[in-house]
Amino acid sequence: MTTMIRNAFMSLLLFTILTGVIYPLTVTVVAQALFPHQANGSIFMKDGRPIGSTLLGRQFDDPKYFWGRLSATRPYPYNGGASSGSNRGPNHPDLVKSVQARIDALRASDQANTRPIPVDLVTASASGLDPHISPAAAEYQAARVARNRGMDEAKVRAVIAAYTGQRQFGILGEPVVNVLQLNLAMDELK
């Protein structure tokens, strides 16, 4: 009995050192050596200043920028400190309300555009930090962004095309556009 108790507590202690300390430290050291950029949050710089992470989305509501997914994080959208989805079921009254509010905002900012709206543009992402939208959702906003910037629409579409990522290896995932990078590229154009 006492042997068993010693076995149990000693092995737990050693497993803690092995899997709780040595393992994560080894991974950290190797990861920092091999992939320092990724291991530290894929942060990109401009003029020596960190601008943001290519992997984390950010709120855009100005009509001259492309808008991203809805974000359900609290207390404000795209709060990197508290990832969250809306967790609203398909029949939740608030889901319909938030979708309608997004539709209204999109229509109000671009009254000439009466096409159906791509679904990812009116729904909240799982993480609340989704950095991407579908190419269709970017296309949908092209005319609005062009007008608000006094630019040629074809030029805007060319930037979208340049920033559209295809499926990985042609199979995995979905084609997407990184909203933050796309918007930064738009600002660069001026």
Partner: peptide, 27 residues
Amino acid sequence: RFTAMGVDQTASDSQPGGNMEGKDARF
């Protein structure tokens, strides 16, 4: 419900379509 509201949920080469509430675009 969304289709009636003017939302496009059809899958195509440029969007996944379907029920995208609570799903990230890359997936």
